[in-house]
């Protein structure tokens, strides 16, 4: 049951773009070698995936990203405003 529950979480995280960052393993206290190996492998995997995207992820960050992108989108969508010469 634990395996299935962890699988469930793994798939959910994958669906929202945080896949591969959760691992489950049974290691007995007599299996020091296995422990070392599993931790090593997982560390490598995480290193490969890069830092946690949630870290330092703030709304500001996002607004900036989205804002910049919105700027370009808006530019392509709307025609450049014509220069208007004020009367008088």
């Amino acid at each position: 049951m634990t395996i299935k529950r962890i699988n469930f979480l793994q798939e959910l995280l994958e669906f929202m773009g945080l896949g591969g960052r959760l691992h489950l393993e049974w290691i007995s206290s007599a299996e020091a070698q296995k422990f070392v190996q599993v931790v090593k492998e997982f560390t490598e995997k995480i290193r490969h995936l890069g830092p946690n995207p949630l870290r330092g992820f703030t709304l500001n960050n996002l607004t900036l990203d989205v804002g910049a992108a919105a700027g370009t989108a808006a530019k392509t969508a709307c025609p450049e405003p014509k220069e208007t010469v004020a009367q008088n």
Binding site: G17, G20, P53, F57, L62
Partner: peptide
Amino acid sequence: EAEIFAQQERFQRWMYEFQ
């Protein structure tokens, strides 16, 4: 269709929604 995007983009998109 929601799974078409690569992991990083999915994350960005969902976070845009959630925020």
